[in-house]
Amino acid sequence: MNLKRETQEIVGYPYRYALFYNFPGGLRFELSEGGNPLDQVLTALRKATAVCEDVFANEKTILVHLLTFLPLSKFGLRRKLRELHVAGITIPEVRELWLDVEDQDDDEVFYWVNCAFEVPVSKVQNLIWCAVTTDFGTSLSPNPHCRVYLLNPSDGIVVHPYDDRGMDVISKHKSALAGLYERHKHLLLSHDIEIMRRTFADS
């Protein structure tokens, strides 16, 4: 099993940010609704979990793709692993690690550390927590401070809760997302609803 290849080929080519805008035909969900940080995270957790329960309803495992930015000290890496462990996520021995390079306009080169592995589908809520707490510093824990992508290779779906505010869901197959559009229409981000309506209203 080549986990890196699975993550890169599931929607045709590698993804990193703004999935809804970079992969036309996806869904963007609105998560938190204001309030104190804990209220925001709990609301985001509830909404994202409802969508993910549909995405992974027929699956026993989730393919997880974690992404974090270099430079990363040994201390920083240990902290991320500790926070994941506290969140109930243990990276298994069967995993894949790789670096991606990002060139900047000023000729600087930056690196991203990728880690892909599988976990039981029962861990979906734990992983969503890790994703939606990412912007809250140390005020909410556990918080491994990394991007979290949840993949369903069977249906070709990538789920990215990018922070407490929202979550993108993309796929190469429009049919894989049509049911999510109908069942969770009330959670879709109103700012982009017309784009999604044009894609799915006639499905």
Rank of each mutant, 00 (worst) to 15 (best):
T49K: 15
G166T: 03
F200A: 12
L66Q: 03
L72T: 00
G35H: 05
P71N: 02
D202V: 14
E30W: 09
K47M: 07
L150F: 02
W112A: 02
F20P: 05
A48F: 00
P144Y: 11
D164L: 02
L77P: 01
N114P: 03
R165L: 07
G35D: 01
K60P: 05
K4F: 02
I157C: 01
P14H: 06
I157T: 06
C146S: 05
Q125S: 13
R198A: 15
L177D: 14
E96D: 11
R78P: 00
L72M: 02
S122G: 12
R28K: 13
D100R: 06
L188V: 07
E33Q: 13
E33N: 11
P153R: 03
T61Y: 13
L66T: 06
E108L: 10
V41K: 03
V159P: 02
L42H: 15
H65Q: 13
R165F: 10
R79F: 00
C146G: 06
A131T: 03
T133M: 04
M167A: 10
L67S: 01
N126V: 04
E59M: 11
I128Q: 00
T90C: 06
L3F: 02
L27S: 06
N152S: 09
A131S: 12
R183D: 06
V124D: 03
I89H: 07
R78N: 07
I128T: 01
S73T: 04
E6G: 09
L27I: 09
W98M: 07
L67Q: 12
V86W: 03
I62M: 14
V148G: 04
V169W: 03
R95S: 12
I157D: 04
H145V: 09
